[in-house]
């Protein structure tokens, strides 16, 4: 696991906290490596991410593809309003819907 992604696991849930502010061509390979950490419910936490470009969208799609092949559920958390706009524009939000922090609390307690 790279320094760019921290893993928090509880039960069947893993939250992958992205620790870089740019999801772009430079960080793509390190972020992609976290694909191997996916669990039946995987949440990508974008709280520290201030920029995503098309190279970033492409690497995030690799999580989508892997999740669908494994039958896993994949969610995005703490997306900025601009990134929500972009995700909606390219229909990424169909494949990686957003989840709220509070929705995770029931999993954390179980």
């Amino acid at each position: 696991m790279s320094d760019m992604v921290n893993r928090e696991k509880f039960g069947d849930v893993v939250v992958l906290h992205i620790r870089t502010n740019s999801v772009d061509a430079v960080s793509a390979a390190a972020i992609e490596a976290a694909c191997n950490e996916m669990q039946p419910i995987t949440v990508l936490n974008f709280a520290e991410v201030s920029f995503i470009n098309s190279a970033g969208i492409s690497v995030l799609l690799k999580f989508v593809v892997k999740a669908r092949k494994a039958g896993y559920k994949l969610f995005a958390m703490n997306l900025s309003p601009h990134h929500q706009k972009i995700f909606k524009m390219v229909e990424m939000s169909r494949f990686m819907p957003t989840i709220e922090e509070r929705d995770l609390s029931s999993y954390r307690q179980s």
């Binding site: 098309s54 492409s58 690497v59 799609l61 593809v65 669908r68 524009m89 390219v90 229909e91 494949f95």
Partner: peptide, 17 residues
């Protein structure tokens, strides 16, 4: 805007947006 569809998921991991 290029949109992601069920059919283009794999292809779009290589870019094109």
């Amino acid at each position: 805007v290029v949109m992601i569809t069920e059919q283009t998921l794999d292809e779009r991991t290589g870019g094109g947006f």
